[in-house]
Write a protein that binds this DNA or RNA. Structure first.
Length: 513
RNA sequence: GCCCCCGUCGUCUAGCGGCCUAGGACGUCGCCCUCUCACGGCGGUAACGCCGGUUCAAAUCCGGUCGGGGGUACCA
């Protein structure tokens, strides 16, 4: 048994965690959760959060994806103390720039007894498995009980003689370095799951590099964690079963002087999509940056994502990142996978919206208004004034920043471009509706003062008292005529903001005059 | 096949042997507020996978079983 425990002289301020994504495709919400928990752990303990990039797979990495990762982390304000873009004492922080380090590590390992050369081809390995399987089945048919053969590499080249090696080399075969798993079992204390034990006979010897010399993930990640002095590794549960081989590797590192000890591990449960499938890049809700596009607040997304496997208290869902940092303990992380629920994410986001003062929401909504061409870029003075007055009306009725443009557009469009929603117009501006609009026009036209209160009084007198309409019936057509839609900010306030000229103009336009 | 992980309302979770006729949140349903929408308020709905065991007492501990997931690569 191997003990992976840290020596207990380690102080919380010395804790070093990392997140190490591969820059392939657009960043995933599962990655946000992993980043958040690592970050919260580091901040809670006063440790260090490292951001490293695992870009050894040249074929799949893109610079665009890398930019997306940086963009995402900055938007979320998950700041890192060391890593790409900011540097640090253990750089470089991109694996593609660390070839020398891996070559050196591999050379040391090869000089030890922990690594041997394997000359097998993949076909040979599977062929041997088929053979074992056939033999097992044959024996079973005859009633002989035995252990079913394991799939995967069978440690065939473990103890090759000098002659055999020479023969293979003479054949012109290439070889890969394989790590020799020790006998016995490996037990480690997973910080979220508790004690986990693997019998090493179930863990085949594994390749550390390709035949062409390129190091594999099995080597690079542990080497980086060792050389960057990472003390705790929190990652997805898909890596749980590769942990024993990494711990064994770390033991070899210690022997060859690459590490002082293995880090502690904690395996975070999956973030799932619909059904029982891990949220994949194919699912639209998987893409983290989409939430920014939709107008999520970073603190809203983060709060929701934190809830996927962690709870701050039994009766509380809404909290700030400061509060999370204060309360976060890795031991409290739940073991079972969580489904990502967009509806709840939106609700949590809405709660955060309500926590913000109007001025802040205004500030944050501007990029969305610009993107949709609702306000000028840069924002003109009149636009800024209008916004300042209009935002109190809409701030509490939107759940995402991205909902603001549609709600505000009617206040900003030039009259020439103002258009009615066809469906709403067809529904509400029928004969009866136009009568209402006519009555409204007449009532408002004579107004001496243009204020919310005056407007409301005039319309109430004309429509509710005069035409004896239900408020619902009365204001619907007017709303469509003035704002273009059935759904809008409060009508009387909107009219005041729009001004007498534009309001009356729109009413008249509907009446066809 | 073999190894490992996981199993409380539809969903996310609280629960660490008695505080549980299982709490909160989202969803959903009903009501109230209301010029639309949204907000807000009130109320309802709904769960310990199953079987054994330990115990005076089990959602909580143990065993089994079923179900789900991951691994078993010269992918990460």
């Amino acid at each position: 048994m191997t003990d992976s425990g840290l020596n207990n002289t380690l102080e919380p301020k010395d804790y070093r965690v990392r997140m190490a994504p591969s820059p392939t495709g657009s960043p995933h919400v599962g990655l946000v959760r992993t980043a958040l928990f690592n970050w919260a752990f580091a901040r809670h303990h006063g440790g260090t959060f490292v951001f490293r990039i695992e870009d050894t797979d040249k074929a799949r990495n893109t610079e665009e994806s890398y930019d997306g990762l940086i963009d995402l982390m900055r938007w979320l304000k998950l700041d890192w103390d060391e890593g790409v873009e900011v540097g640090g004492p253990y750089g470089p922080y991109r694996q593609s720039e660390r070839s020398d380090i891996y070559a050196d590590a591999l050379a040391r390992l090869r000089a030890s007894s922990h690594v041997y050369e394997c000359y097998c081809t993949g076909e040979e390995t599977t062929a041997r498995y088929e053979e074992r399987l056939a033999a097992y089945k044959a024996a079973k048919a005859e009633g002989i009980k035995g252990e079913a053969p394991a799939q995967g590499y069978d440690n065939y080249c473990r103890d090759l003689s000098e002659d055999q090696i020479k023969a293979y080399e003479a054949e012109g075969r290439t070889s890969v370095p394989r790590f020799r798993m020790p006998d016995g079992s490996i037990t480690f204390n997973d910080l979220v799951r508790g004690e986990v034990t693997f019998e090493t006979k179930h863990v085949p010897d594994y390749a550390l590099a390709r035949a062409n010399g390129d190091p594999l993930y099995t080597l690079t990640a542990p080497v980086d964690d060792a050389t960057m002095n990472i003390t705790h590794v929190f990652r997805g549960e898909d890596l749980l079963s590769s942990t024993p081989r990494q711990i064994a590797l770390f033991d070899a590192f210690v022997e060859v002087g690459l590490a002082e000890r293995a880090p502690e591990f904690g395996h975070l449960p999956y973030v799932m999509g619909q059904g029982n499938k891990k949220l994949s890049k194919r699912d639209p809700e998987a893409h983290a940056l989409k939430y920014r596009e939709a107008g999520f607040l970073p603190e809203g997304l983060l709060n929701y994502v934190a809830l996927l496997g962690w709870a701050i208290a039994a009766d509380r869902d809404i909290f700030t990142m400061e509060e999370m940092v204060e309360a976060f303990e890795i031991h409290d992380v739940v073991k079972n996978p969580a489904r990502f629920d967009v509806k709840k994410a939106e609700a949590i986001n809405a709660s955060h919206m309500r926590l913000l003062p109007v001025e802040e929401i205004t500030h944050r909504v501007i990029p969305y208004l610009k993107a949709d061409g609702v306000v000028s870029d840069p924002v003109s003075d009149p636009d800024a004034q209008m916004l300042e007055q209009a935002m109190p009306l809409v701030a509490e009725r939107i759940n995402k920043l991205g909902e603001a443009p549609d709600m505000l557009r009617f206040l900003f469009v030039p009259e020439a471009d103002f258009a009615l929603d066809e469906e709403d117009a067809a529904k509400l501006l029928d004969e009866a509706g136009l009568e209402v609009v006519q009555a409204s026009y007449d009532a408002l036209n004579g107004l001496s003062t243009w204020s919310t209160a005056e407007i409301q009084d005039a319309l109430t007198a004309a429509l509710i008292d005069g035409l004896e309409l239900k408020p619902r019936k009365a204001y619907g057509p007017v709303r469509v005529a003035v704002t273009g839609k059935r759904i809008s900010p409060p009508l009387f306030e909107s009219m005041e903001l729009l001004g007498r000229e534009r309001t009356l103009g729109r009413l008249k336009a509907v009446l066809g005059k």
